[in-house]
C-alpha cells in the first residue's frame, strides 16, 4: 500500500512551488513579493526537513520499511526549497549586491546560521545517491547525521528572524526537538518497538 502511494511525494512536495507560481500569475504575492517568496520557500524547506526526520523513528517503532525510500526524496526536496530560498535572498532580494550581502552576513547571526544550515545540507544532497552511499560505507551514516545540526540551525534561524512573538518557531522547534530526542539511544530502547508477527 505505502509502496504504491510513494509516488505521491513528488506532486505533494512540488505543490508549494506550483502555488507560488500560481500566486505570482494572479498577483497574490502581497505588496512585497520578494519577501513573500523568500518566506514561503524557507518555511516549505523547514517543513520538508522535519518530515525527513519523521521517517526513521516512525519506521523504527511502527515497522514501516516501505516509508524509508521517502527519506531521501523528502530530504532532496527540502534541499531544493532551501536552495531556492538562498538563491532568492542572494539573487532577487539583494540582487548580487555582495557588499550588502557581506554586511548582512557579518552583522546578522540569523543570516549566518541560515547559510550554515544550507552548507550542511549541501554534502548530504550530493552524497544522497546509492553510489556515494557505497563509496562512503560506514562513514555515510555519520555524515548524514549532519541533518540534526542543520535542522537545529534552521530553527535558530527562524527564531532569530521573527518579530518578538516567537511562538511559531518554538512550535517547529518543539517538533525538531522531539524528533531528535526519539533518536537518543536510551529513549530509543525505552520506546516499544513493533516486532514482525
Amino acid at each position: 500500500m505505502i509502496a504504491r502511494a510513494r509516488w505521491l511525494v513528488h506532486p505533494l512536495a512540488l505543490l508549494p512551488l506550483a502555488l507560488l507560481f500560481y500566486d505570482f500569475l494572479i498577483d497574490n504575492l502581497t505588496a512585497n513579493p520578494i519577501q513573500e517568496i523568500t518566506q514561503r520557500t524557507g518555511k516549505t524547506a523547514l517543513i520538508l526537513l522535519i518530515l525527513t526526520l519523521v521517517v526513521t523513528p516512525v519506521n523504527r517503532h511502527f515497522r514501516l520499511p516501505d516509508l524509508v525510500p521517502l527519506r531521501k526524496r523528502l530530504g532532496l526536496y527540502a534541499f531544493l526549497y532551501a536552495t531556492l530560498h538562498l538563491s532568492i535572498f542572494v539573487g532577487l532580494d539583494y540582487f548580487f549586491d555582495w557588499e550588502l550581502i557581506l554586511l548582512e552576513l557579518s552583522e546578522k547571526l540569523y543570516v549566518l546560521v541560515g547559510l550554515t544550515a544550507w552548507l550542511l545540507l549541501l554534502p548530504l544532497a550530493v552524497t544522497s545517491t546509492k553510489g556515494w552511499q557505497r563509496r562512503l560505507g560506514k562513514r555515510w551514516k555519520g555524515l548524514h547525521r549532519l541533518i540534526y545540526v542543520a535542522a537545529s540551525a534552521v530553527i535558530l534561524h527562524f527564531l532569530w528572524l521573527v518579530k518578538s512573538d516567537i511562538r511559531e518557531p518554538l512550535a517547529y522547534g518543539a517538533g525538531v526537538a522531539l524528533l531528535l530526542t526519539l533518536r537518543l539511544p536510551p529513549v530509543r530502547r525505552w520506546l516499544p518497538r513493533r516486532t514482525p508477527e
Partner: peptide
Amino acid sequence: VPHPRWSQASERRIGEFRR
C-alpha cells in the same frame, strides 16, 4: 545602526525590484 533582523543599510521600496 544595525538591527539583528532586518537590513537598515538598505530597503525595498514597495513596488520596486531593486533595493
